[in-house]
């Protein structure tokens, strides 16, 4: 009697491989396809407007994504899109697309991006109703927080989603950027804008085994169509990166990562002091327990430092991206944020 064949490639792995081969001709899933209009264009950035068929809430929501990633992380295709879900709930949503900086944008400063451009987006979003809910994700959350601290006008509430605020607790990224031999000026002089490949290399070093772990997860679950589509959409986004405008990056590293000025109360936007206690609108801070890019200790202090009486902290499980775009996010995090806005409409 022959012993049954046992192999590393058991049926579930084989099924996954077959699913991957079958999936290949269809290519990558479409992203950023929730219907929208272009409300504004200036230099490389655009303001996208997503209007619901039937509007249930008066105050629109302005989404401020990170400068170094594409906006469509918040619109990763049908059933995975935070924007699509918000619009279905009856919210008017506006989202900034920062675009791709050209070589000449090496001179763009924090004040240009986080003051002039973001300010215009806030005023345009609030044009009809007077106020707007502002949500900033990752570096977009830092931009939004500094802006709201300096220019609180027209802001109904601030949501900081996995946003680094206290750079003394920024984890390994803080250690790296505070290394004395790392001269930001020399990178700017040589490259102008900070190449996305350089930044991605540093993010990969945060968890060097992540790519192998992803491959194993893919082999394990690729037979699940929904998982595969979500995985490919997220990977598509993850590999579509943007370089960081040079002058803005210099200030980000020198004044925030190195001097921690937002927490110290010495940061300014367009000449106006950006002190966190000056924020008095309702504030929601969201942090993720397994986030190694923005640790909870870096995101959480916003709640302690703002002057608002109406403030909430949500610490959820998950990582920096997965916790925002996963099925679990659609079940827990998205409704929690939507409730926060709905109750303050």
């Amino acid at each position: 009697m022959k012993a049954p064949k046992s192999s590393l490639l058991d049926s579930s792995v084989l099924d996954s491989l077959v699913a991957l081969v079958k999936r290949a001709p269809r290519g990558l899933p479409p992203v950023g396809i929730t219907p929208h209009t272009i409300a504004w264009t200036e230099n490389k950035w655009r303001l996208l407007r997503f209007s619901p068929a039937r509007r249930r809430y008066a105050t629109p929501i302005l989404l401020v994504p990170s400068l170094i990633n594409r906006w469509y992380v918040l619109d990763l295709g049908p059933q995975r899109s935070f924007i699509e879900w918000l619009v279905a709930q009856g919210h008017e949503v506006l989202c900034i697309d920062w675009g791709t900086p050209g070589d000449e944008d090496r001179y763009l400063t924090w004040d240009d991006i986080g003051g002039r451009y973001l300010g215009r987006a806030v005023r345009l979003a609030a044009a009809d109703t007077g106020d707007v809910h502002v949500l900033g994700y990752c570096l977009g959350g830092t931009l939004a927080t500094a802006y709201v601290a300096a220019f609180p006008e027209h802001v109904a509430s601030l949501t900081a989603l996995a946003a680094p605020i206290d750079f003394a607790h920024g984890g390994i990224l803080t250690t790296w950027t505070r290394t004395p031999t790392f001269e930001v000026g020399s990178v700017l002089e040589a490259c102008g804008n900070i190449p996305h490949a350089l930044m991605q290399a540093s993010f990969r070093m945060l968890r060097p085994t992540l790519h192998v772990a992803k491959l194993v997860a893919l082999l394990d679950r690729a037979r699940d169509d929904e998982f595969l589509d979500g995985f490919l959409a997220t990977e598509r986004w993850g590999n579509d990166n943007v370089s960081f405008p040079g002058a803005c990056y210099e200030r980000y590293i020198e004044e925030l990562y190195r001097d921690n000025r937002l927490v110290a109360g010495t940061f300014a936007v367009c000449g106006r002091s950006a002190r966190l206690p000056a924020i008095t609108c309702p504030v929601l801070a969201v942090a993720f327990a397994d986030d190694h890019i923005v640790p909870v200790a870096s995101a959480q202090p916003l709640i302690d430092l703002v002057g608002s009486r109406d403030k909430q902290l949500v610490v959820d499980r998950g990582g920096h991206v997965g916790a925002v775009v996963s099925r679990k996010a659609a079940d827990r995090l998205w409704p929690a944020m939507q409730t926060f806005w709905a109750e303050r409409d």
Partner: peptide
């Protein structure tokens, strides 16, 4: 390690 990596990067950029 970070010091050496930073010095290498800075030298390459210069």
């Amino acid at each position: 390690i970070l010091g050496s990596a930073g010095a290498l990067l800075t030298a390459a950029m210069k």
